[in-house]
């Protein structure tokens, strides 16, 4: 489903050259729940941006559902992003002026669905996250956890190939974080692939597979063990 081989990403300024990802390789299969962890500055966000086609990379190959991402132009990447990826952001990234219905509608409009089809998908998605009764509410009228559920509904509505979550519980208190995590697990059990970037070891443990990034490279799972143990302790 997702195949990255030897991805290299370098950020250059006049004085410094930063290797954010070095020969990064990863394969994710359909239905998996993968957690990507790593210390600050390890390249997690770069990985997230490249996986989500929000940024380009310098070398290597990235096949998404069989398509070579490096060959796509900006418009094609936007289209592929819209069709294949459901984004969940740390700060929810809901549009404050739009009610829940219209927020979930945003990616569907870019897909070009009919109004009827969009309505069906929006209602289903909001139903799935338990917010169908609050469609006309504004994000500001919801708690953080509810807002993240709306963001999950928005990600689900397009029936993407996988959900790409960036610290999905990072801005939530522990209770809400648990609820959101539970929801993600349910979604995964229903068959949706999830790739979650997090620095939270406890959260990472709940995923089926953990990828640990250190200095822009995938570290061995064994290297991750002490981190998890420390977190557990």
């Amino acid at each position: 489903m997702l195949q990255m081989n030897n991805i290299k990403k370098i950020f250059r300024t006049d004085l410094v050259e930063t290797h954010a990802l070095r020969d990064f390789s990863l394969q994710v299969e359909e239905g998996e729940f993968v957690a990507v962890t790593g210390p600050s500055g390890s390249g997690k966000t770069t990985f997230l941006n490249i996986t989500g086609m929000l940024e380009t990379f310098n070398s290597g190959s990235y096949l998404l559902d069989g398509q070579d991402v490096s060959q796509l132009n900006d418009n094609q990447r936007s289209k592929l992003r819209n069709e294949k990826i459901g984004f969940i952001f740390q700060s929810f990234n809901l549009i404050p002026d739009l009610n829940l219905y219209d927020n979930v509608d945003v990616p569907l409009r870019y897909r070009g669905f009919s109004a009827k089809e969009r309505k069906r998908r929006i209602e289903n998605a909001l139903e799935r996250v338990g917010l169908s009764a609050r469609m006309k509410h504004l994000p500001s009228q919801l708690s953080g956890g509810q807002q993240q559920r709306v963001a999950i509904a928005r990600a689900l509505a397009g029936e993407p190939l996988f959900l790409l979550a960036d610290e999905p519980t990072g801005n939530l208190d522990s209770l809400m974080a648990r609820q959101v995590m539970q929801l993600l697990e349910e979604i995964n059990q229903q068959g949706t692939t999830i790739i979650m970037v997090t620095h939270d070891a406890e959260l990472a443990r709940r995923a089926q597979r953990n990828i640990h990034i250190v200095d822009g490279q995938v570290s061995d799972y064994q290297q991750l063990q002490p981190v998890l143990e420390v977190a557990e302790a």
Binding site: D74, R81, F87, F89, P107, R111
Partner: peptide, 16 residues
Amino acid sequence: IKQIGTRRALGATKLD
């Protein structure tokens, strides 16, 4: 800016 970036991430093209 953030909202525009989000729209782009959700599939909006530059033309959108």
